[in-house]
């Protein structure tokens, strides 16, 4: 308990994120896991506009926001400055720091993908968190390449001729894995394995090179669930194997949680309004279940569980 009181707190109360938003929970947990002071760089996102309304800021650690699609480039510039000043012993304080870059799925899967790939290839020693809320929630719930198949968004609306988004989500964690960086984790703010996110963040902070965490960030407004159910929804994502918890340490895949009983994908779909139009369409649900099963089997193989 005493130790917990000494850890860094990223955000103060009174920020303007929606009730039930998971992003503040994730940001706080991640920063708490750092053994060193954290300097954060934030892409334009829900988290950014809701926490930095001038002349106020909810951030209790240094924060830089530049734009939507470049958080990794900005972070690698911060890292370059950090190394340059450290070399010359001209840092404001003679202390090792951690450089943390944060972005939503828009700023990571889509518009920010080039900048992310560039920074990972250059092996910048940055820690990168993707808040994957599966859509452009900041601009009002539009589809992104992380939006799941069949989901209703304002740009993939359900209608007489539409069942929502027709494309399967992009496998960003797999794309990041292809960069062969020291640490990659897929996580979620879950109670079924409460320390999983924090432990992965802590491992990321020790990586000798870039570390990447793709964190499922349930969004009450965008997904259509009660604000009180944020964590329950995250649990469900893991229990249905929709969002498995795993890590890739120096290229070695490792499952960090295996549900004892794999819940049917229908449970996941039925818990959110964005999928409610699918519930009467049995063939579509079967198709989704099949693909989720295939992805899960493939993951088990990579993790040497089969």
């Amino acid at each position: 308990m005493k130790k917990l009181l000494q850890v860094q707190e990223a955000l103060t109360g009174g920020h303007r994120l929606c009730a039930g938003c998971s992003e503040s929970i994730i940001a706080k947990q991640v920063v708490m896991a750092s053994p060193r002071p954290v300097v954060a760089i934030l892409a334009t996102s829900c988290l950014e506009v809701a926490t930095t309304i001038y002349p106020y800021t909810a951030w209790m650690i240094p924060l830089l926001h530049v734009a939507f699609e470049n958080v990794d480039a900005v972070a690698s510039g911060v890292e370059a400055a950090y190394l340059a000043l450290k070399k010359q012993s001209t840092l404001p304080h003679n202390e090792d720091l951690e450089i943390l870059a944060l972005g939503g799925d828009g700023g990571t899967y889509d518009i920010g993908l080039q900048s992310l790939s560039g920074a990972l290839e250059r092996k910048a020693r940055i820690r990168r968190i993707c808040f994957c809320n599966e859509g452009y929630m900041n601009t009002g719930i539009q589809r992104s390449s992380a939006t799941p198949f069949g989901a209703h968004t304002t740009t993939t609306p359900r209608g007489n001729a539409s069942f929502g988004k027709i494309e399967w989500r992009k496998d960003l964690t797999g794309i990041v894995a292809a960069h062969h960086i020291p640490y990659i984790g897929q996580a979620a703010p879950v109670t079924l394995k409460p320390h999983d996110l924090r432990i992965k963040a802590a491992k990321g902070f020790e990586a000798d090179g870039p570390a990447f965490l793709n964190v499922l960030a349930p969004c009450s407004r965008g997904w259509g669930f009660e604000p009180k159910d944020t964590i329950a929804i995250a649990n469900l994502a893991v229990e249905t194997c929709y969002w498995p918890l795993f890590e890739i340490v120096e290229g070695k895949w490792n499952l960090t949680y295996e549900p004892k009983i794999k819940k049917p994908i229908r449970d996941w779909l039925a818990a959110q309004k964005r999928f409610e139009h699918l519930l009467t369409d049995e063939p579509l649900i079967e198709y989704i279940q099949k693909r989720i099963d295939e992805e899960w089997e493939a993951l088990l193989k990579k993790c040497d569980r089969k």
């Binding site: 300097v39 760089i41 830089l64 530049v66 734009a67 699609e69 470049n70 480039a73 900005v74 972070a75 690698s76 510039g77 911060v78 890292e79 370059a80 400055a81 950090y82 340059a84 000043l85 404001p92 080039q114 900048s115 790939s117 560039g118 290839e121 250059r122």
Partner: peptide, 21 residues
């Protein structure tokens, strides 16, 4: 820093400059 585009070049310059370099 040999970045992957001019967009990232200026972005990295901003990060480095904000960091006091």
């Amino acid at each position: 820093r040999l970045v992957e585009s001019e967009h990232s070049a200026m972005s990295a310059c901003i990060g480095a400059s904000a960091a006091g370099a």
